[in-house]
């Protein structure tokens, strides 16, 4: 799409309701995208690297003041993160991410965890259940007008979420915790890449002329980077001397992303990419409002 079309977008001021995505025939669709990244990835990476280097150590366990659990202060875990926030605003979907992580603790009350997780999510069209959706939106988000797709079967956007995250945990030694065993609270910082291969957009608009417009979008993979911090509260208990079960709950959301000139709650978009980004970011942002993790770990 040329710049003219882009300008038309602005003039038309499309509302982002009932927009469906699907895999279809891909055709060239070009438009300039303002790459005004809100997410300064390089700086985030620098922070992560420095934290990594300052906290990670290949030293022997005995040279630290933390006895850990029976001498073990490191562990690897298999993670499942479930996002429950979507129950508030979308259809009843609890999304699960799966991954691996590594945690180590040099002191009795402080541990650092590095992990990776991935998920494949579906973003259904808005307004599936308009009345509930409206009420939910009114209750938890700012009021919006509903745009109802009429007579159309709903489609969905399928996107993947790959995350690298780090958790800084403070273990509660007054409750007998010895990092990485016991109850803790902490901060999770997650760098997430949301991407989709879907290449067809359908815009629904109710301003004149009323109807849908289908467009094929650029084949280039569409992805957006997001920074998602969460506050977590959890407890790691031992099943055997080596195997642990870690359960935690978190509260977080997307606070930074590199999509252009748009907030994830803003229904006004200026480009196809923003549409796509919005469709990916918003469910993650809302889903992460209430999340819970279940990890099975092995101490060593």
């Amino acid at each position: 799409m040329n710049m003219k079309y882009y300008r038309n977008y602005k003039n038309m001021r499309f509302k982002m309701r009932g927009i469906n995505f699907s895999h279809g025939n891909q055709s060239q669709f070009c438009f300039s995208i303002l790459l005004n990244s809100k997410l300064k990835q390089y700086k985030i990476n620098r922070v992560i690297c420095s934290l990594f280097l300052t906290t990670f150590s290949f030293g022997k366990v005995n040279s630290q003041s933390n006895p850990g659990f029976l001498g073990k202060t490191q562990l690897v875990e298999v993670n499942v993160l479930t996002e429950w926030g979507r129950l508030m605003s979308f259809n009843s979907t609890v999304v699960a991410s799966y991954g691996l992580s590594y945690e180590m603790a040099r002191t009795k009350n402080f541990g650092v965890l590095f992990g990776f997780r991935t998920s494949t999510q579906k973003r259904y069209a808005d307004g599936y259940d308009p009345e509930f959706y409206i009420e939910s939106i009114d209750e938890y988000l700012r009021p919006r007008e509903a745009v109802l797709p009429s007579g159309k079967s709903m489609d969905y956007l399928s996107f993947t979420n790959n995350e690298l995250y780090v958790q800084f945990k403070r273990y509660n030694t007054t409750k007998g915790a010895l990092a990485p065993f016991g109850t803790y609270w902490g901060l999770e910082l997650s760098g997430s890449q949301l991407s989709t291969k879907d290449d067809r957009l359908r815009y629904q608009y109710y301003e004149w002329p009323n109807g849908f417009i289908d467009y094929s979008v650029d084949k280039s993979p569409r992805s957006v980077l997001a920074f998602i911090p969460s506050v977590i509260f959890g407890s790691r208990q031992m099943i055997t001397d080596d195997i642990s079960l870690n359960v935690y709950m978190g509260i977080g959301t997307v606070i930074f992303h590199n999509s252009t000139n748009m907030t994830i709650y803003d229904e006004y978009v200026d480009s196809d990419k923003e549409v796509v980004d919005y469709m990916m970011l918003r469910p993650v942002a809302i889903g992460r409002l209430f999340n819970a993790g279940f990890n099975l770990g092995y101490f060593f």
């Binding site: 006895p67 659990f69 409750k175 007998g176 010895l178």
Partner: peptide
Amino acid sequence: LETKMTDAMLKAQIYETLY
């Protein structure tokens, strides 16, 4: 400690003492 006296807790505390 404000905690239940589970086996794991005892082991951890005893190990800490010996450590």
